[in-house]
Nucleic acid binder design. Structure first.
Length: 204
DNA sequence: CTATGATCATCC
DNA sequence: GGATGATCATAG
């Protein structure tokens, strides 16, 4: 299935409840008192017929699936609730590659982002809001993200991986990610401003 | 353990 | 409410 086919397929989910869909596919949302933070992503993947796996994610071969929560505002508009993890930072790879050849750029050209409406952390219900394709075709945005990548790359090369901070970057930030408990791995995250641009919301 | 899927908890 | 660092489930 290519990206446009998936877009059409997932479009049928708009307005429906993803919690119910997740349960139908056997996705674990709550494990006792603790939540499976990836439940929404797992739900969509199962719906598309993918087995769960942790392989380096050209998970659909030619494009990348992401789902992000948005919050419904009283005035009827929507805001992005969270930043979005894009891909792990491999310091060796980042130091060696120009933005054009980076894993980050490759992924940003192949996104299919699903926005779900977050109601509460009980996650008793979550409606599918919209599906958006993204390919980083906007020049100004491309230059800003390249600048962020170059900043991160420069810090890794001149100071070291451990000097990266979540406060760096305008559209894309380097942030800790992993199982926690001392893990020091980091990933590129799309800040909410970038996510909003991808979704075409929050900007007016 | 670290990759994938992400959101939670706490600070301001 | 927004930003940053920490953390959860699952699979290999």
């Amino acid at each position: 299935m290519d990206r446009s086919e998936a877009l059409a397929f997932l479009g049928k989910l708009i307005g429906s409840d993803l919690v119910g869909l997740g349960n139908k596919h056997g996705v674990t949302i709550w494990k006792g008192t603790r939540i499976n933070k990836g439940w929404a992503g797992h739900t969509i993947e199962r719906h598309l017929g993918l087995p769960l796996n942790s392989s380096r994610s050209p998970n659909f071969g030619s494009w990348e699936l992401k789902v992000v929560p948005v919050r419904a505002m009283p005035d009827g508009t929507f805001k992005v609730k969270e930043t979005m993890a894009i891909t792990m930072i491999d310091p060796v790879e980042v130091a060696a590659k120009e933005f054009l050849n980076s894993h980050l750029y490759l992924k940003l050209q192949r996104l299919l982002v699903v926005a779900r409406i977050f109601e509460s952390k009980a996650e008793s219900r979550s409606l599918c809001h919209l599906i958006a394709e993204f390919d980083l075709s906007d020049q100004a945005l491309y230059h800003q993200i390249k600048a962020d990548y170059d900043l991160i790359r420069d810090v890794i090369r001149t100071k070291g991986f451990d000097y990266l901070k979540g406060s760096m970057g305008v559209m894309v930030q380097p942030r800790t990610k992993g199982p926690g408990h001392g893990s020091r791995s980091r990933a590129f995250y799309a800040r909410t401003a970038l996510v909003a641009t991808i979704l075409g919301i929050g900007v007016r």
